[in-house]
Amino acid sequence: MLLQWVPVLSDFKWRETVWSFVPGKPSQPLALHLGDYNLDGFPDALVVLRNTSSSGQQAFLLENVPCNNASCQSVGRMFRIHWDQSDLGAIQNAIMATFFDIYEDCLLFVSK
């Protein structure tokens, strides 16, 4: 069986700013924290991205949605970044973001 990488997240530009994953290090590796944000049965993710033109970092929600481009048609799903989520955007210089699922209401937690 031949394994193949399928891009499910590709658009890292928002309002003329290019974002990227924060480089991992032994004390703080790159992490996607999974949880079902919208309770649709598909795992969504929280991640901290860094602004490539400044030193800013921010947490973003990656929603698992049906694929809408040719690169992910074989798997049928992709992640869409919620760029303008005001509650996450209000926390500048985030270090980590994760889900808590207390009482099955999927709370978000961001540390800075």
Rank of each mutant, 00 (worst) to 15 (best):
L39K: 14
S10D: 13
D40H: 11
A31M: 11
N38H: 13
G89S: 11
L46N: 00
S53G: 11
V8N: 03
R15M: 05
P26K: 06
C72S: 07
E16R: 13
H33F: 06
A97C: 01
F109Q: 10
M96T: 09
Q92E: 10
F109A: 15
D11M: 02
P7A: 11
C72R: 04
P7N: 14
V65S: 05
I95N: 04
L49N: 06
N51I: 08
W19I: 00
T52C: 11
F109K: 03
K25S: 09
K112W: 07
G56F: 06
I91L: 12
D11N: 15
G89A: 13
D44A: 11
W83F: 00
S27G: 13
A70R: 05
D44V: 13
A70P: 00
N93D: 14
S74T: 13
S10T: 14
K25P: 00
S27D: 14
V8L: 03
L39Y: 11
L61K: 04
V110L: 07
P26Y: 03
S54L: 06
F100M: 06
P29R: 14
Q57K: 15
A45P: 02
F100I: 09
R77Q: 15
G24R: 02
P66V: 11
D84H: 01
W19Y: 15
T52N: 13
C67T: 08
R80P: 01
A94W: 05
G35L: 05
L3W: 12
N64K: 10
F79A: 04
N68W: 05
F12L: 14
S111V: 09
R80D: 02
S55I: 04
R15K: 15
S20V: 03
L39D: 13
K13A: 11
G35N: 08
S71V: 06
N51P: 07
G56W: 03
W14L: 02
H33C: 13
A94I: 03
A90S: 13
L39G: 08
F21L: 15
A97D: 00
A31K: 15
Q58W: 04
L30G: 05
V22N: 01
P23D: 04
N68Q: 14
L49P: 01
F60K: 12
L108T: 12
L9S: 11
S20M: 07
D101R: 05
H82T: 02
M96K: 10
L39P: 01
N69W: 10
D11Q: 10
D105E: 14
Q57N: 12
K13Y: 01
L9P: 12
T17K: 12
F42C: 05
C67K: 09
D44I: 12
F60C: 04
D101G: 05
L30N: 03
S86P: 07
D87E: 13
F100C: 07
G41L: 13
M96A: 14
F99C: 05
W5E: 09
S27A: 10
V6L: 03
N51Y: 07
A59T: 04
W5C: 01
A90F: 07
Q92C: 06
I91W: 01
L46F: 04
